[in-house]
């Protein structure tokens, strides 16, 4: 799911899909394969699904874009949206993005936009995306990230990792102002969840939270049992 993980990440690195939600994305200038535009020029016309990649990536970027492209074809969603692919690598140029568009046969697809920008730091900060350069591998450690932006420029949904067509459809509906159910992902500092999910087996297991839920009942039962026992002992003592 991730080409890089926390050991090389800065302290504020996190995998939260909730960070920066409902905040406005930076309105930066983009150099697209079809010319220069402001990001706001895109999202005011149709909501945007943004993904950040770099063309020299030997990790997650290719399978991620493959999956995204296939899912988009399979979904054939009627909703109004554009897919914006931006390189976060300052070394990438428009020509690199053109080659990438051709590789995925999207160079003539008006729904897809491939771009680079001189303001990538500002964009990354506004969406909470923090790639880390690994000088040994000469690669970035980074999330495979999809960001749903509505027509007002607000980030309304984020997805990390390759998540399949259902989750993607959720993003498309959400950026088109449909109400889509969501729930925060478990975090390290959330220790009282009712269930834990084991990715190896795909099963949910009862967790500490459930124990907390039944605790008041257990405590009351114990208290009543104790009071009752005490009364019995007193009766025996008196008798």
């Amino acid at each position: 799911m991730l080409s890089g993980i926390a050991w090389s990440a800065p302290e504020d690195y996190n995998f939260s899909e909730e960070s920066k939600l409902y905040t406005k994305i930076a309105d930066i200038k983009l150099n697209t394969t079809r010319g220069e535009v402001m990001l706001s020029d895109l999202y005011v016309k149709s909501p945007v699904i943004l993904t950040l990649i770099f063309t020299r990536c030997v990790g997650i970027c290719s399978p991620f874009l493959n999956s995204l492209s296939e899912d988009m074809d399979n979904l054939n969603a009627k909703e109004n949206y554009k897919v914006l692919v931006i390189s976060f690598d300052p070394l990438d140029e428009v020509s690199d993005m053109e080659r990438m568009a051709k590789r995925y046969e999207r160079e003539d697809d008006p729904q897809w936009v491939f771009a680079v920008t001189d303001n990538i730091a500002e964009l990354n900060e506004s969406i909470g995306f923090y790639p880390v350069w690994d000088s040994t591998r000469q690669q970035y450690d980074h999330d495979a990230l999809l960001v749903g932006i509505n027509e007002n420029g607000y980030i309304v949904r984020k997805l990390t990792g390759i998540r399949g067509p259902d989750a993607l459809m959720g993003v498309i509906r959400e950026i088109n102002n449909e109400f889509v159910l969501s729930y925060p992902l478990p975090r390290e500092n959330m220790i009282f969840s009712c269930f834990t999910y084991d990715p190896a087996t795909g099963k949910k297991k009862p967790s500490l939270g459930l124990l907390i839920l039944v605790l008041p009942g257990i405590l009351t039962l114990l208290m009543i049992a104790l009071l009752s026992l005490k009364k019995q002992q007193q009766s025996v003592g008196n008798g």
Binding site: Y183, N189, I191, F192, S193, C194, G209, I212, L213, L215
Partner: peptide
């Protein structure tokens, strides 16, 4: 007793400075 537990969990999060988060479902 449930209210007591609920309030304790609220205070844990309130005073933890972001180091403890409650599960909304719980």
């Amino acid at each position: 007793l449930t209210a007591v537990i609920l309030l304790v969990l609220y205070f844990l999060e309130y005073f933890s400075g972001g180091n403890f988060t409650n599960d909304p479902l719980l």
